[in-house]
Protein backbone atom coordinates (compact mmCIF):
# COMPACT_ATOMS: atom_id res chain seq x y z
CA UNK A 1 0.00 0.00 0.00
CA UNK A 2 1.27 3.40 -0.92
CA UNK A 3 0.69 5.38 2.21
CA UNK A 4 0.45 4.26 5.83
CA UNK A 5 0.59 6.14 9.10
CA UNK A 6 1.12 4.08 12.20
CA UNK A 7 1.20 4.76 15.93
CA UNK A 8 2.92 2.32 18.28
CA UNK A 9 2.19 2.89 21.96
CA UNK A 10 2.83 1.23 25.30
CA UNK A 11 5.15 1.40 28.28
CA UNK A 12 8.85 2.23 28.11
CA UNK A 13 10.84 -0.99 27.94
CA UNK A 14 8.32 -2.89 25.78
CA UNK A 15 10.26 -2.21 22.62
CA UNK A 16 7.76 0.32 21.30
CA UNK A 17 10.40 2.53 19.70
CA UNK A 18 12.30 -0.36 18.16
CA UNK A 19 9.14 -1.85 16.61
CA UNK A 20 8.76 1.40 14.78
CA UNK A 21 12.41 1.50 13.82
CA UNK A 22 12.44 -1.93 12.24
CA UNK A 23 9.34 -1.12 10.25
CA UNK A 24 10.86 2.16 9.09
CA UNK A 25 14.03 0.37 8.05
CA UNK A 26 12.00 -2.18 6.07
CA UNK A 27 10.23 0.67 4.30
CA UNK A 28 13.55 2.36 3.56
CA UNK A 29 14.92 -0.87 2.07
CA UNK A 30 11.84 -1.03 -0.14
CA UNK A 31 12.77 2.36 -1.55
CA UNK A 32 9.90 4.18 0.15
CA UNK A 33 9.97 7.44 2.07
CA UNK A 34 9.90 6.82 5.80
CA UNK A 35 9.84 8.82 9.01
CA UNK A 36 9.93 7.85 12.67
CA UNK A 37 9.04 10.26 15.43
CA UNK A 38 9.04 9.41 19.15
CA UNK A 39 7.18 11.04 22.00
CA UNK A 40 9.76 12.95 24.00
CA UNK A 41 10.12 14.82 27.23
CA UNK A 42 9.29 14.17 30.86
CA UNK A 43 6.15 12.19 30.02
CA UNK A 44 8.48 9.37 29.03
CA UNK A 45 9.54 9.13 32.65
CA UNK A 46 5.96 8.46 33.61
CA UNK A 47 6.50 5.22 31.74
CA UNK A 48 4.45 5.72 28.59
CA UNK A 49 6.16 5.68 25.25
CA UNK A 50 4.92 6.02 21.71
CA UNK A 51 6.17 6.63 18.22
CA UNK A 52 4.75 7.61 14.87
CA UNK A 53 5.92 5.87 11.70
CA UNK A 54 4.98 7.00 8.21
CA UNK A 55 5.70 4.99 5.09
CA UNK A 56 4.84 6.70 1.85
CA UNK A 57 5.58 6.72 -1.86
CA UNK A 58 5.38 10.49 -1.79
CA UNK A 59 7.49 12.84 0.34
CA UNK A 60 6.35 12.90 3.96
CA UNK A 61 4.90 16.02 5.55
CA UNK A 62 4.61 16.13 9.31
CA UNK A 63 6.13 13.05 10.95
CA UNK A 64 3.59 13.25 13.76
CA UNK A 65 0.71 10.88 13.11
CA UNK A 66 -2.70 12.19 14.09
CA UNK A 67 -5.01 10.18 11.82
CA UNK A 68 -3.53 6.72 11.94
CA UNK A 69 -4.19 4.00 9.41
CA UNK A 70 -2.96 1.57 12.09
CA UNK A 71 -2.54 1.82 15.86
CA UNK A 72 -0.71 -0.82 17.90
CA UNK A 73 -1.24 -0.65 21.67
CA UNK A 74 0.54 -2.55 24.41
CA UNK A 75 -1.24 -1.13 27.46
CA UNK A 76 -4.54 0.25 28.65
CA UNK A 77 -3.54 3.96 28.77
CA UNK A 78 -2.42 3.71 25.17
CA UNK A 79 -5.74 2.26 24.07
CA UNK A 80 -7.54 5.03 25.93
CA UNK A 81 -5.36 7.65 24.29
CA UNK A 82 -5.11 6.40 20.73
CA UNK A 83 -8.27 4.41 19.94
CA UNK A 84 -9.89 7.56 18.61
CA UNK A 85 -6.92 8.24 16.33
CA UNK A 86 -7.60 5.28 14.03
CA UNK A 87 -9.20 6.43 10.77
CA UNK A 88 -12.53 4.77 9.90
CA UNK A 89 -11.75 1.48 8.22
CA UNK A 90 -8.28 1.52 9.79
CA UNK A 91 -6.64 -1.17 11.89
CA UNK A 92 -6.23 -1.47 15.66
CA UNK A 93 -3.91 -4.13 17.04
CA UNK A 94 -4.13 -4.86 20.76
CA UNK A 95 -1.97 -6.89 23.09
CA UNK A 96 -4.93 -8.51 24.84
CA UNK A 97 -2.69 -9.89 27.60
CA UNK A 98 -2.02 -6.35 28.79
CA UNK A 99 -5.14 -4.42 27.86
CA UNK A 100 -8.03 -5.15 30.16
CA UNK A 101 -10.84 -3.55 28.25
CA UNK A 102 -12.63 -4.04 24.98
CA UNK A 103 -12.21 -1.40 22.28
CA UNK A 104 -15.26 0.76 21.66
CA UNK A 105 -14.86 1.40 17.95
CA UNK A 106 -17.01 -0.59 15.54
CA UNK A 107 -15.96 1.07 12.30
CA UNK A 108 -12.43 -0.35 12.23
CA UNK A 109 -10.63 -3.63 11.85
CA UNK A 110 -9.43 -4.98 15.22
CA UNK A 111 -6.92 -7.73 15.90
CA UNK A 112 -6.55 -8.87 19.50
CA UNK A 113 -3.48 -10.93 20.18
CA UNK A 114 -2.38 -12.37 23.52
CA UNK A 115 1.08 -11.25 22.56
CA UNK A 116 2.77 -11.94 25.91
CA UNK A 117 1.56 -15.54 25.85
CA UNK A 118 2.41 -15.95 22.20
CA UNK A 119 5.88 -14.52 22.70
CA UNK A 120 6.51 -16.74 25.69
CA UNK A 121 5.59 -19.77 23.57
CA UNK A 122 8.20 -18.70 21.06
CA UNK A 123 10.82 -18.12 23.71
CA UNK A 124 10.52 -14.85 25.60
CA UNK A 125 7.94 -12.31 26.67
CA UNK A 126 10.39 -9.62 25.65
CA UNK A 127 9.57 -10.13 22.00
CA UNK A 128 5.83 -9.59 22.31
CA UNK A 129 6.38 -6.42 20.29
CA UNK A 130 7.60 -8.53 17.36
CA UNK A 131 4.48 -10.69 17.50
CA UNK A 132 2.37 -7.56 17.11
CA UNK A 133 4.61 -6.21 14.36
CA UNK A 134 4.28 -9.51 12.48
CA UNK A 135 0.49 -9.19 12.60
CA UNK A 136 0.67 -5.61 11.37
CA UNK A 137 2.81 -6.42 8.36
CA UNK A 138 0.77 -9.49 7.48
CA UNK A 139 -2.54 -7.64 7.59
CA UNK A 140 -1.53 -4.34 6.02
CA UNK A 141 1.09 -5.63 3.56
CA UNK A 142 2.73 -2.31 4.16
CA UNK A 143 6.08 -3.92 3.35
CA UNK A 144 6.82 -7.51 2.33
CA UNK A 145 7.64 -9.77 5.29
CA UNK A 146 11.02 -10.44 3.64
CA UNK A 147 11.87 -6.75 3.84
CA UNK A 148 11.10 -6.73 7.54
CA UNK A 149 13.21 -9.83 8.10
CA UNK A 150 16.02 -8.24 6.19
CA UNK A 151 15.74 -5.11 8.36
CA UNK A 152 15.90 -7.27 11.48
CA UNK A 153 18.98 -9.01 10.20
CA UNK A 154 20.73 -5.82 9.19
CA UNK A 155 19.83 -3.61 12.14
CA UNK A 156 18.88 -5.93 14.98
CA UNK A 157 21.07 -7.96 17.28
CA UNK A 158 22.36 -11.06 15.51
CA UNK A 159 21.63 -13.41 18.42
CA UNK A 160 17.95 -12.47 18.55
CA UNK A 161 17.29 -12.84 14.83
CA UNK A 162 15.90 -16.38 14.83
CA UNK A 163 13.75 -15.69 17.87
CA UNK A 164 12.41 -12.45 16.42
CA UNK A 165 11.67 -14.20 13.15
CA UNK A 166 9.60 -16.81 14.94
CA UNK A 167 7.74 -14.11 16.81
CA UNK A 168 6.94 -12.25 13.59
CA UNK A 169 5.62 -15.46 12.04
CA UNK A 170 3.53 -16.18 15.10
CA UNK A 171 1.99 -12.72 14.83
CA UNK A 172 1.36 -13.18 11.13
CA UNK A 173 -0.59 -16.35 11.92
CA UNK A 174 -2.89 -14.40 14.24
CA UNK A 175 -3.47 -11.86 11.51
CA UNK A 176 -4.45 -14.57 9.06
CA UNK A 177 -7.01 -16.06 11.47
Amino acid sequence: MAHQEIIFAGFGGQGILSMGKFLAYAGLDEGLNVSWFPSYGPEMRGGTSNCSVIIDEDPIGSPLVVDASTVVVMNRPSLDKFESHVVPGGLLIIDSDLVNREPERTDIDIIKIPAQTAAEEVGSKKIANMVLLGALVERTKIVPMEALLHALKAHGKEQFYELNKKALEKGAEYARK
Binding site: K21, A24, L28, N33, V34, S35, W36, F37, P38, Y40, I60, S62, P63, L64
Partner: peptide, 10 residues
Protein backbone atom coordinates in the same frame (compact mmCIF):
# COMPACT_ATOMS: atom_id res chain seq x y z
CA UNK B 1 12.70 22.43 15.72
CA UNK B 2 11.89 19.67 18.17
CA UNK B 3 10.43 17.53 15.40
CA UNK B 4 13.46 17.69 13.13
CA UNK B 5 15.71 17.04 16.08
CA UNK B 6 13.82 14.03 17.39
CA UNK B 7 12.60 12.34 14.21
CA UNK B 8 14.47 9.69 12.25
CA UNK B 9 14.69 9.84 8.49
CA UNK B 10 16.99 8.31 5.92
Amino acid sequence: DGMLGQMMEP
